[in-house]
Amino acid sequence: MSFFDYFRTRKNTGSASVAKERLQIIVAHERGKREQPDYLPELQQELLAVIRKYVQIEDDMVQVEVDRNDDCSVLELNVTLPERR
């Protein structure tokens, strides 16, 4: 570093750090989706249909995810029921 550099502001104020942060988030999100099995959307639709036989729920009230660990996979099913009136 030269003598004059001491007078320059060295703070990381550029847009590169914003780019990195945004990329880390979107790439992690997209990798998560990519690792989900192909049958998941169809499974979600069928579950929705079965539950609707009994309870009226919206499309986004059933969440299906697969969590993969080293030696086992967990199918996580989250159903939100409407509030009772």
């Binding site: 990381n12 550029g14 847009s15 590169a16 780019a19 990195k20 990329l23 790439v27």
Partner: peptide, 16 residues
């Protein structure tokens, strides 16, 4: 531009 913080560094791209 990397030095000025305007461009992703090689290390950033490698990390991502």
């Amino acid at each position: 531009r990397v030095e000025r913080g305007e461009m992703l560094s090689v290390a950033d791209v490698e990390e991502i």
